[in-house]
């Protein structure tokens, strides 16, 4: 297959396939979790599950009292990575065109130099957390193959995207194919790995807040 044929495939059937698997997998995962259900709580409630659940979804995004160096590192590197990744994903002209081709919606882009910075910061944060995953005994103990696999899958679109913008390593067409494929693999992987936290984090936080909120505690 020529790189043009590859490009046609990854922009067409490849994208449809990966997006389809992503949506199917994620819907499956969320529905399966929800319909697994939980027992009705017969104790007399002291607070609202809904309200506290929603509040926890919001408040868990921030620093909490008694946080340690590990916590600060996690939150700072976590935010740097997540913001870097999301801004790069959502505010590069080329990416907006992709979303527009899907949804018909578009929004203003950020200048390429800003996107370069966010992508580099995203990669730097990922490198930092990887080093820490090896260096920190707690994280090292908790880590399994999936943590490293997900790291690779996440860093690839950022790195190939940067190479693409700065025209390095491979001819543009081939690199564009590699970049799009790396994104598609990431899409497919999200529902079946810990990356599914992009959606289930809201469910988990809600349950946490709801369980504590039922007792009148804002978790």
């Amino acid at each position: 297959m020529t790189s043009t044929e590859w490009l046609i495939w990854v922009r067409g059937p490849g994208l449809q396939l990966s997006l389809g698997i992503f949506i199917l997998g994620m819907t499956y995962r969320i529905m399966q979790t929800y319909f697994l259900g939980r027992a009705k709580n017969l104790a007399e409630p002291r607070g609202s599950q809904w309200l506290h659940g929603m509040k926890t979804i919001w408040w868990r995004s921030f620093f909490h009292p008694g946080m340690t160096i590990r916590g600060y590192f996690t939150i700072i590197s976590g935010y740097t990575f997540h913001l870097g990744f999301i801004i790069t994903l959502l505010f590069l002209d080329q990416h907006i065109e992709l979303f527009r081709s899907w949804t018909g919606l578009s929004w203003p882009a950020l200048p390429p130099i800003v996107i370069t910075i966010t992508a580099v910061l995203g990669i730097a944060a990922l490198v930092a957390v990887l080093v820490d995953r090896f260096a920190d005994p707690v994280r090292y103990l908790l880590s399994d193959y999936q943590d490293y696999l997900c790291w690779v899958l996440t860093v690839l679109p950022l790195v190939t995207g940067l190479l693409l913008v700065y025209k390095m390593w491979l001819p543009y067409t081939s690199l564009l194919v590699v970049h799009i494929i790396s994104f598609e693999i990431l899409l497919v992987a999200i529902p079946f790995t810990k990356l599914s936290h992009v959606f289930t984090i809201f469910i988990a936080r809600w349950y946490n807040g709801a369980i504590a909120g039922y007792k009148g505690v804002q978790s």
Partner: peptide, 25 residues
């Protein structure tokens, strides 16, 4: 931009995912 529409794929995926997810759950 993607080549071809994804609306149909997305709709089928949501329906299939929801169906299978609810059934499994």
């Amino acid at each position: 931009a993607g080549i071809g529409s994804v609306g149909g794929v997305a709709a089928v995926a949501v329906a299939a995912g929801a169906g299978a997810g609810i059934a499994a759950g």
